[in-house]
Every structure is written in structure tokens, then in C-alpha cells.
Design a protein around this nucleic acid. Structure first.
Lengths: 218, 218
DNA sequence: CAGTGTGAAGTTGTTCACAGCA
DNA sequence: TGCTGTGAACAACTTCACACTG
């Protein structure tokens, strides 16, 4: 290793760790609200059903270190997690497909406190165009070009029907979006540098039904 | 191993495999609609961005076997996957919390073709009680006891706000529900025999924001 | 040969074991 | 003693290598 380099080696954070971070933050904010000063990894583990060592290792990624016998300072962890998750920056997003799921996402309170701001929604359905959903304007899909061009949006959310999803993704890529949050149940083909996060509600349902079946068979 | 036993040894299907199953089914139904007869694992892999061996191993869990050089029979795979996922049986569910997310889930077309039937919704908000969402009646939460008692529902969906989630879960457990699909961002405490599937929208957002951050830092 | 099927190797994430500390 | 922190053992899943088949 180069001893002259002062760069901190940022080894990638394991994805499961990243996925647990919001849960930690949620719980820790609760503790902060209740004026708790310190929290230990075993306690977090008990509440969130996680192995204590897991919690310790996850916390290490935030850069916060704890005190033996005492635990971690709650406020310090909250701040570190908010920074880690980017909740103190604002991430602007466009949403395409203002159907039930799209509307639900727009109206979802929680996003506001997590730094995600849905700036505008788009749809091809003329009935939806022109209305506001929780203060977010719905434009006709054709406007997407103009607006995406002018504003500099980094996240595109696809809640359009499956057959339209690829087309929407192409447009998003063309207009400089850097990450796509895809709720349509189809795999998207995009250039390598585009981040795609698929969120398939079906996958979770499948897990439930499968477990139910297994229990019935025993 | 006991040679007298005729029971088939059902080794548990890895969860990642279960999660991929709906995606396979989706794609295969598409092929069936387009009258395709055969499909090979490498092709599936190319379309769904999966390793061909992965696909082969996943398909093995459905019980279907393919022909070398030819692939799998599409209709056979579709049927096997529908059976595997329990899409041909009907699973009835109660949903508690008829807010934006709850309404979106109720109105989500896709569930109907996946064997999930949301039979009734419950809310404490008097404004929501009495209305129908896509044909699903919304009752006051107090009715939950009566109805859950009479009908024999196996799945409970929690789309209630976080502070109410545990209380809702307790009620569901008390009235004999066997699996809980939890959308509230809190860990539920339930007896061991209850299946809990947490679906935290935040986790997916966290992954996106984290990847965006990493790219910015490079 | 281009596919299926499967045991072995590799990789990633989790759990264990224990040193260090107050 | 009960915590943090970390290297080692373990488990789960994925990818590789290759025998087998029409």
C-alpha cells in the first residue's frame, strides 16, 4: 500500500448492510426522541432481531465508534446514519406513471424526511394530466423531454405498466438520469453506468406464499 | 436414508430462488403468449440478466427437466411455476391501513392473477370507512375481530402507520392469521409460528442513494 | 456442439471466539 | 463483567468446470 497516499480507503459497503441502515436510523431517531443518550449493539440487536456482532460491524461503516460497556452515542449515530444515507442532501426525482402505485409513492410522507423529492410526475392518460397529487404536478409524458432537459434530475422512478417500462427507461437515460428505481416487473436494458434498482412487490409475495406452502406440507 | 420411505425429500428452496420465480413466470407467460414452444436457460439468462447455470438450478426446483440442445417446454414451465408459487390456489388476505399505500395495493391489478385476494380492508379513519376501493369494502378497525373470526383468512397485510403496526400485528395473531406482510418500517414481535415478511420501501431507496454517492466519490 | 445437470470452487455475508477495555 | 472491535470459522448463494445427451 502506498504510504504517501492520504486517501481513505472506502471499501464498498455490503448491500445487506445498506438495506439495514434505514431500519437502524428509524429506531435510533425514536431513541433520540425519547432522550436516550446511549445505545448498545446488543440492545439494538434484540429490538431489530439482529445478531449483535452484525450490528457492531454495520455501525463501523458509519465511522462512529462506541465505548465499551456504554455503547454508542445516539445523536452521533443518528447524524452519521443520516449522512451515510444521504438524508440531509436533497435528491430530486421524476416519476413516470401516475397510477395507483405512483400516486401512493408521491403521497408517501416518509420520503420527504429521507431526502427524496419527487419534483414532477408524468403520464400518458389525459385524465391524470394537469392535476396535482399532494402538490406534485402531473404532466403529459411528452413534456418529459423539456423538463428533464431543463431541471437536472438524477433519479427516475418508473411506475408505468410493464409494456411501457423499457421505453420510459430509454427516455430517462437519453435525458441524463443517473439512477432508475423500477417498479415494473420487467428487466430493463440500460447502459452500464446507469444504476437500476428493481423493486418487485411480487418477489415478497412469493416468499410469503412459499413459506405458507412449506408449513402446510410439513 | 430410509429406503422404505416414499416421501419425496423436499429440501428448502433458497429464498433468492423464490424471489426470482415471479420474474421467470412473467417472462415465460410472455413467451407463451407469443406461441414460443421451447426456451433455453442461456436465453432466459440473457433476457433477465442472470447466469445460465443459475437459471438451470432454479428451474430444477420446479421439477421440470429440460432437453439438451432444445431447452424447456414453455407451457410446462409456466404451469410448474404457477403451481410452485401457488398462483392457482386462492390466498385470501385482510389489509389494515387503507391509506395511500394500502389503496394502491388493493387496486394493484397484478395480485389477482397471482392468487392473492384482498377480501376486506380496515381503517380507524371514519372518512375511509364504508367506502369501496376497487370493490373491496373498508370497515372500521373494530369490525376486524368479528370478520377475522368468521372468515378464515391466512394472510394479514399491514399498511398502517408505524406506531400502530405492533398493535395491529397482535390483533392479527390473536385471530389466527398465519402470515403477516408488513409494510410498516418497524420490526414486529410475533410468536415463532407466524410468518413475517417485511417490505421496506426505504431499503431500496437506501441502496440507490448509496450507489449514487459512491459514484460521485470516485 | 449447444444445451442440461451437477459436484467443486469461489464469493459474499453472517456468526463465533476472543482480545482489549473501562 | 459487559461492552466494542476484529480475525477466523461457518453458511448461503453464485459461478465455474465438466460429464452427459440428442
Amino acid at each position: 500500500m502506498n504510504p504517501i497516499s492520504t486517501e481513505k480507503i472506502v471499501q464498498p459497503v455490503p448491500e445487506p448492510t445498506v438495506r439495514r441502515m434505514p431500519t437502524y436510523l428509524n429506531y435510533l431517531r425514536d431513541l433520540a426522541k425519547r432522550q436516550e443518550q446511549f445505545i448498545t449493539a446488543p440492545t439494538i440487536g434484540r429490538v431489530l432481531h439482529l445478531d449483535p456482532t452484525q450490528v457492531v460491524k454495520d455501525m463501523a461503516f458509519t465511522g462512529v465508534s462506541g465505548r465499551p460497556r456504554v455503547g454508542y452515542l445516539v445523536t452521533e449515530l443518528v447524524a452519521a446514519l443520516e449522512d451515510f444515507l444521504g438524508y440531509n442532501r436533497t435528491h430530486e426525482a421524476f416519476l413516470v406513471g401516475a397510477g395507483f402505485l405512483g400516486s401512493a409513492l408521491i403521497q408517501y410522507q416518509g420520503f420527504r424526511e429521507s431526502g427524496l423529492r419527487i419534483v414532477a410526475a408524468f403520464d400518458i392518460d389525459k385524465k391524470k394530466v394537469g392535476i396535482d397529487i399532494a402538490g406534485v404536478p402531473v404532466f403529459h409524458f411528452e413534456k418529459f423531454r423539456d423538463l428533464a432537459n431543463r431541471l437536472h434530475i438524477s433519479i427516475g422512478i418508473i411506475t408505468a405498466p410493464a409494456p411501457a417500462a423499457q421505453q420510459v427507461a430509454d427516455l430517462m437515460v437519453g435525458w441524463g438520469i443517473r439512477a432508475i428505481w423500477n417498479f415494473a416487473p420487467v428487466p430493463l436494458v440500460v447502459p452500464d453506468h446507469i444504476i437500476v434498482q428493481d423493486t418487485h412487490i411480487y418477489a415478497n409475495l412469493a416468499v410469503i406464499l412459499n413459506k405458507l406452502k412449506n408449513i402446510n406440507e410439513i
